[in-house]
């Protein structure tokens, strides 16, 4: 099918994915704070209220638990809700609903009721935002079987992954990097295409070292690897993890650097390191290095640039594994 492409940023790509899925399937509805009349605080849902009406683009009261809890009831009833939590730092009141119910409904009813819903939320630092507007606690959601965790790193993938997430039969936490929202533009086709969940992508091939990242960190990684013969993996889906792509690359390069914005302790990098150590240890030439945020409370804007892994820190991490 011939498709027109346009240069879009991530905000526009996500908006397009929502619009097209809502046009295709009347069971797709959006709910959240300020998603309707205002078009969302990041303008992700702009124009959708006018197109689809207030029964499908629902401005809810300011209450995260019922936004997600109601989405669970809607999903069980047969709709495909896309709930927006305004910032990842505000998702904690809804964690009870995600952990205690969304993740478990299929299992607890042996498939009679399911929860095909998406919870979209902006995450990460770097936009000089107030307290609790810069969190990246993706690892929490990876520790909850029954939930999938998806993190796009570019407009093209954001659209394709969101379409897959909306069509997925299980609950998906969809994390959108606030710093990437308007940072890059790329060709995004109009019309239907999907990027499958559970599959990582090789962004660039290389021989000496595998650098694994996702979402916000990918672009700094690409800058950092310029002087190296590095293979870069964008995980895109954290859970379920595409172990195959990782193992294949590790077996080739023998060196691994994992980069994420979240604090080191119990970050998703810990799971990746352990997975690689368990199944590909004998292929490693060097210790696995994690370049991550620090084990501190996410700082306010004056210190956030010291917190987020920089191109320099990533380079240092790569240099360290290259010494072996």
């Amino acid at each position: 099918m011939p498709q027109n492409s346009k240069k879009l940023n991530m905000v526009q790509a996500i908006n397009l994915a929502l619009k097209e899925e809502m046009q295709r399937d009347s069971s797709v509805v959006i709910l959240g704070e300020d998603v309707g009349r205002y078009g969302g605080v990041f303008r992700i849902t702009e124009g959708l209220l006018e197109l689809f009406g207030e029964e499908r683009v629902i401005d809810t009261p300011l209450a995260e638990s019922v936004i997600v809890g109601a989405a669970i009831g809607m999903a069980a009833y047969g709709l495909k809700p896309v709930a927006e939590i305004q910032f990842m730092g505000f998702i904690y009141p809804a964690i009870d609903q995600i952990f205690s119910h969304a993740s478990r409904i299929r299992n607890r009813t042996r498939g009679r009721f399911t929860c095909p819903m998406v919870v979209r939320t902006p995450y990460g630092a770097g936009i000089k935002a107030p307290d609790l507007h810069s969190e990246s606690t993706e690892a929490l959601f990876c520790h909850m079987p029954g939930v999938k965790v998806v993190v796009p790193s570019s407009p093209y993938n954001a659209k394709g992954l969101l379409i897959s997430s909306i069509r997925d039969p299980d609950p998906v936490i969809f994390l959108e990097s606030t710093r990437l929202y308007r940072l890059i533009k790329e060709d995004v086709p109009e019309g239907e295409y999907t990027v499958p969940l559970g599959r990582a992508r090789i962004v660039q091939e290389g021989k000496d070292v595998t650098v694994i990242a996702w979402g916000s960190m990918l672009h700094r990684v690409l800058q950092a690897v310029e002087e190296f013969n590095a293979e870069v993996i964008d995980l895109m889906t954290l859970n379920p993890l595409d172990e195959e792509t990782i193992f294949k690359s590790v077996k080739k390069t023998g060196r691994v650097v994992i980069v994420h914005e979240a604090p080191k302790t119990c970050g998703f990098g810990a799971e990746l390191s352990a997975t690689i150590a368990e199944d590909a240890m004998l292929y490693l030439k060097a210790p696995i290095i994690r370049v991550t945020g620090y084990d501190v409370v996410m700082p306010l804007p004056k210190l956030e640039d010291y917190y987020i892994p920089t191109v320099e820190r990533i380079k240092k991490g790569i240099e360290e594994v290259m010494r072996y």
């Binding site: 809890g69 009831g73 809607m74 809700p81 609903q97 205690s100 119910h101 409904i105 042996r110």
Partner: peptide, 29 residues
């Protein structure tokens, strides 16, 4: 708790009160 197809009874909720939002969502749907 696999509810028969001719009924629509959600599985019993152990965490107290957490089923209220589900009912609201189903009613919206």
């Amino acid at each position: 708790m696999k509810c028969p197809d001719d009924l629509n009874i959600f599985p019993l909720a152990v965490p107290v009160g957490t089923q209220v939002p589900h009912a609201v969502g189903a009613a919206m749907a």
